[in-house]
Design a protein around this nucleic acid. Structure first.
Length: 431
RNA sequence: GCGACCGUCGCCAAGUGGUAAGGCAGAAGAUUGUGGCUCUUCUAUACGUGGGUUCGAUUCCCAUCGGUCGCCCCA
């Protein structure tokens, strides 16, 4: 019988790795909360229609990467491939626009895309994202980007690049698209095959083709930046100015386009050189047309999403110290073992982290495990201690040992706390 | 979806067409209530799975599943 294994492109996150997840989540919560963003949780599956309309039917994500299936009521459902569409749907459905000016929201959760897995890319992956709904102010664009860089910096990630561009409004893009097609059509035979296909389907995406010959041809192609209307141009400059004021460094990349149809004006990506082909760690932009496209009121919006697996891939290049166990409790003998269980529970209620050895094996073996557990203090309960209701405190760092009445230990818990904290600080200078 | 490489114990890893080294981790003991060192012993009827070739395959071939890298695309 062959054991069942996790499906392709999915994986288990085991206890040894979870510390990175908890760290990312804790840092994200802190940063988003202090910027007055509020968490929203939306369903993992939605009507297929939502994504087709929201993301764009011609995009790769929708046309070939969605997990779409029929439920028992013959409804077409899709596991969400990204977070924005669901958030916007909820925003409209619950009339959040009526709650005041801009809604600042964030989310965190699994997304699903049917793709060939490779490093930094899975079929079930996790994103953390923010959306500001209801503000057209360029400061919203700048704020959202600054929060992203703040998050990444606080996580300790270095050598990241912020690429930034404006793709204008719909009219700007329409004009530019035409100009680009006009320019490229004579060269059609010389473009790589994918780009030839994109010439009719999605010409803007030719801009970030990795084919050298295509890139050569693009050298003298018209630039998006020359097709921005005066208003779009002004807005682009304002956001740049604000980013500079905030001390956020960026690089303008006129070739930066995004794969989802809903973007307007500001688009950006934050990339790392340490991730191989999947370099983008955070990406987003403005999407002024999406809310109305999905049946809501005309609502300007801006946001981004970041791939948690990719963040963690980068974080793991620098080790993170684990949360230390306070106490390892060893015991031997019927009465002692029963007391030990109770003592462990009491100490936990006093907020110590306590691991109880359940093996019942020789003390020597139990000490060995105590040592490896990373605990700073070992409590020992044997027949002698059980008889007198005392407990031996053995400080694993120094080997010093003392006997204390169990009742006293509990009564003076704050002193114990102080001493444990001091020991832990001494052995772990880095946090 | 396309191309390439890879798949031997929980982890790392050697190896050969003739029947599976080693290291780490784990368990037991040296040490009947005191750890981090040391020593001893144990831990793969089996080399992702299924077929085929062969007297015989973990080693060759095919398929399949999975991983990695690149393309596509994206977080």
């Amino acid at each position: 019988m062959t054991a069942i294994q996790a499906l392709r492109g999915t994986r288990d996150i085991l206890p040894d790795e979870i510390i990175y997840w908890q760290h990312v989540e804790a840092v994200a919560r802190r940063i988003l909360n202090r910027a007055a963003y509020r968490e929203i949780r939306t369903p993992i599956f939605e009507q297929t229609d939502l994504f087709e309309r929201g993301i764009g039917e011609a995009t790769d994500v929708v046309s070939k990467e969605m997990y779409t299936f029929k439920d028992r009521g013959e409804r077409s459902l899709t596991l969400r491939p990204e977070g924005t569409a669901g958030v916007v749907r909820a925003f409209i459905e619950h009339h959040l626009h009526a709650q005041g000016s801009a809604q600042r929201l964030w989310y965190l959760g699994p997304m699903f895309r049917y793709e060939r897995p490779q490093a930094g890319r899975q079929r079930q992956f996790h994103q953390i994202g923010v959306e500001v709904l209801g503000s057209a102010d360029p400061r919203a664009d700048a704020e959202v980007i600054a929060i992203a860089t703040d998050l990444l910096q606080t996580l300790g990630l270095k050598t990241l690049r912020l690429e930034f561009n404006s793709i204008g409004d719909r009219d700007d893009r329409q004009h530019y698209r035409q100009a680009l097609v006009d320019y490229l059509t004579p060269f059609k035979e010389d473009l790589d095959l994918d780009s030839q296909d994109r010439l009719t389907r999605n010409p803007l995406r030719i801009l970030d083709s990795k084919d050298q010959r295509t890139q050569d041809i693009l050298q003298s192609a018209p630039s998006m930046l020359n097709f921005l209307s005066p208003a779009s141009q002004q807005r682009f400059e304002q956001v740049q100015q604000l980013l500079t004021d905030l001390g956020v460094s960026y690089r303008i990349n006129p070739r930066l386009v995004r794969g989802l149809d809903y973007y307007t004006h500001t688009v950006f990506e934050i990339q790392s050189d340490d991730l191989g082909a999947q370099a983008t760690v955070c990406a987003g932009g403005r999407y002024d047309g999406l809310v109305s496209e999905l049946g809501g009121p005309e609502t300007p919006a801006v946001g981004w999403a970041s791939g948690i697996e990719r963040l963690i891939l980068l974080l793991q290049q620098q080790p993170l110290t684990g949360s230390a166990l306070d106490i390892y409790l060893v015991s031997r003998g019927k009465q002692a073992e029963a007391q030990a269980l109770r003592l462990a529970q009491t100490l936990r209620q006093l907020d110590f982290s306590v691991e109880l050895d359940l093996s019942g094996s020789a003390f020597g073996k139990q000490f060995k495990r105590a040592d490896r557990s990373g605990a700073v203090l070992c409590l020992i309960l044997g027949d002698a201690e059980a008889e007198t209701e005392t407990v031996q405190l053995k400080w694993l760092k120094t080997g010093t040992q003392e006997s204390v009445a169990q009742a006293d230990l509990v009564a003076t818990a704050h002193k114990l706390r102080q001493r444990i904290t001091a020991e832990q600080a001494a052995e772990q200078p880095v946090s």
